[in-house]
Design a protein around this nucleic acid. Sequence first.
DNA 1: ACAAACTTTCATTTTTTTTTGAAAGTTTAA
DNA 2: TTAAACTTTCAAAAAAAAATGAAAGTTTGT
Lengths: 167, 167
Amino acid sequence: MEFKEAKNKFVQTWGALGSQWGINKTMAQIHALLMVSHEPVSMEDIMEELQISRGNASMNLRALMDWGIVYKEYKAGERREFFTAEKDLDELAVKISRERSKREIKPALKVLKEVSSIQSDNTEAEKHFVDQTTKLYDFVLKADNVLDKITEYKDNWLAKLVVKIMK
Amino acid sequence: MEFKEAKNKFVQTWGALGSQWGINKTMAQIHALLMVSHEPVSMEDIMEELQISRGNASMNLRALMDWGIVYKEYKAGERREFFTAEKDLDELAVKISRERSKREIKPALKVLKEVSSIQSDNTEAEKHFVDQTTKLYDFVLKADNVLDKITEYKDNWLAKLVVKIMK
DNA sequence: ACAAACTTTCATTTTTTTTTGAAAGTTTAA
DNA sequence: TTAAACTTTCAAAAAAAAATGAAAGTTTGT
């Protein structure tokens, strides 16, 4: 396999993985492309390499910057903008965790708390509902807190976790 | 808020959360419904409660059973089939992790290994590609192994992890 | 202030994913 | 063996998500 082929395969795979985890394919592909590029890439080049429209490129780059995992760069004497990806994988994991927690888990927790707080009558069905949603709330809250803590370590959290777990 | 409303809100929220994580909405909704039901539910009732077609119910129940988080139950003297969800949250997390690892992470790892193994020429671009994909491979492999190890604990792995992390 | 060079927005189109429902399949009981 | 009661399958339809591209917006240099 040669370079170009390998690069393309990587971009496609990363895109597919993104889709499976609820991240739009193009967004994941742009991220993949930037991660393996050793120097900043212009929007024009991204459009060319991924064969996508200007609008698509623009919107997905914006989204990636909102996630904090892609940065704009300005080159001296160049009018157009270039982009780079966060390449430190610990940092990348931390940022993705934070965003998903903020956008998806926290709101879900709020609902779980609400619905588990109905005062249950005496029916079996209601008792079970309150019991199960309360357990779910506790579980998700705990998991979310672990994520928080883990990502506080920031540097090399995964390696440190490995040591703790594998021992 | 009363029971019926709370139950509906929970089902909708779980469905939305599923979508955001790449799980089809109906599948997540059926799972939510079964999780908070204190007794087995028939396909007829699922269709009725979620307002979905027979085919949809059938296919998503099959998928949930393939994931190992929903079970068929037979009631004595009843022709039709009933369904229950895995209600132990540790067990649920373990099963979901295992499936996602098997279906999505392992195949991605295989590709990462392939593409990071091209013998790089001397260009900066190729060196960076090999370096970055190698790092990514190592990172994902390690994370996947941690998941494996964690879920081997099985009982109360989250609580045990909390102790390790928070200390 | 102007215009060139570039980026963003968003209504419309395209693609992808999900859902439907009717036909085919299965199981059970008589 | 037949038929009733139920489930599964899958081609077609519908819905949802993503992509396009042209117009509007912005920035920079003169």
